[in-house]
Design a protein around this nucleic acid. Sequence first.
RNA 1: GCGCUUGUAGCUCAGUGGAUAGAGCGCAGCCCUGCGAAGGCUGAGGUCGUGGGUUCAAAUCCCGCCAAGCGCGCCA
Length: 571
Amino acid sequence: MIIMWRARVSDWDSMHPQKEIAEIVVSALESAIAADALPQVGDVTATVERPKNAEHGDYSTSVALALASSMRMAPREIASKITDAVAPSSMVCDVSIAGPGFINFRLDDDWLRSQIHVIRESGVEFAHLDMGAGQRVQVEFVSVNPTGPLHIGHVPGAVIGNGIANILDAAGFDVQREYYVNDAGNQMRIFIESAYVRFLQAQGKDAELPAESYPGEFVVEIGKELYEEFGNDLDGMDADGVMSVIGPQALSKTLANIRATLSRMGIEYDKWFSEQSLVSGDDFDESLELLKERGYIAEREGALWFLGTKMGLESDSVIIRSKERGPSYFGTDIAYHYNKFLKRGFDRVINVWGADHHGHVARMKAVVDSLGVAPERLTIILNQIVNFKSGDELVSFGKREDNFIAADELMDAVGPDACHYIFLERTPGTHMEFDIDLAKAESSDNPVFYVQYAHARLCAILRAAVEREIEFEDGDVSLLTMDRELALMRRLNELPDMIARAAEMLEPHHMPHFAYEVARELQRFYEACRVISSDPADAELTKARLLLVDAARIVLAGTLNIMGMNAPERM
RNA sequence: GCGCUUGUAGCUCAGUGGAUAGAGCGCAGCCCUGCGAAGGCUGAGGUCGUGGGUUCAAAUCCCGCCAAGCGCGCCA
């Protein structure tokens, strides 16, 4: 029988400490079995993890405990056979057995010190992986109906989507960021009708908003702008004619508004994909044809249905409502995913949705499956709806209401960097509460500023070195022997592990947590170790510490950038 | 009613089936005649919603119950 080894880190080529340790363990295990020191057994799953307690070393595996029952041996005995077979490595200085049978690994101090040079030579790319091996991944996020500005409820999805895209990028995927523009359908029609009425009102004509409308101030502004643009030029046309002219204008104004807000957050898209283009082009018809061939389409009650029940869903869903009323949102979404997978050929697609869309998840997976695409290639990340509080008041929001707080207002109040940090910090599944007042009031006590301050402080030290004309390129890192120095180096070298984990699990919240830990380790180092000393006897130590400071700056700035944040040199 | 998600310190939240469950804020203290005190250190604070089960090992996996949020449209 063959041992199947599955470390948390699966199959990719690039190296990071956790994976290298996993490989050391695998080959030790295999050679112990080959030498008949250990019996052959079936599949086993074990992980290499980072122990909570620093006394247990830098990495640890419980594989011996996991193998105990199938090997019918005492865990510590298995552990001892494995450690006997461990090949020497420059990265690891100590392998020991502890407790009930854990195998603990300690990183070698010289290896840690040499990584300072690696980090400084490669920059943050030292931590970039080729997990993705160039696989094409699309991340679609925000995709809010273009019927008004983004409000605060849209910010978490924007931040999370951007964070996931950035982390996948760092892990070696070929990432495309996309915004799906719902420029077709009912909501768009209502929006354009509202814009039309506001346009008439701007002209000074009598007009009433229809029962279903967007009453917000934003559409009034659009009406005014349209009036400035067209004046009374369209007076001879009927309502439909006017709407066909001003509709696209209103849409592009709204999109420009949304794009500006996102851009202010440092979020840029590779593609803004039009829903309308699915219907006006071939995608809608082709996707339908394919589903029909595969037997998932039926016509009844004057509508065209997707037979979700054939895929184990609770009900079927309407694709085309009627000849006159056209495709449903779900219908175009089928075409959209057909386009993503079968037209554009993405290997993986990640959709970031608000949790209020969770009812749509199973349906979409079923659609992808019935199109003949493995459903695992589609990942849908749901971010829970955030409750925004102001004092004790719950802030409600909604496009159709006029009382929403705009995303821009949140940026004014808290700042884009804090938004990235705060919304990345929580796992998407948590039902989080966000107190706007608290975020403003505590801004100077925020972890956001703690992390950025640490970076600014490093820059201040490096500036001081420049002022004093200290050349430290030839510094000797072997002088760095203090606990705080080594602890900092350990932390810096976790960056590749963190990226691997965040990318594999699609969990961007590891980034702010890591950034915080780096900042904390830096502040401790700063307290304990004077970097620039005026004592000539310390000249060499100063140079060595400056090298470490520079490496730390690279790691911290790089992490902040992956999070979509700035790394300020001064605050 | 059915489904999805969540329940961990006073509050906001981390926690990869592993070793003594952590952080921030708040609270009680201590620490600058030097590189940025937006900092460092110490302490108090927990029946991991609850009851069973699986396992050498459960906050973590499974089942029941309780509570909260969301969804259950020919809206998007």
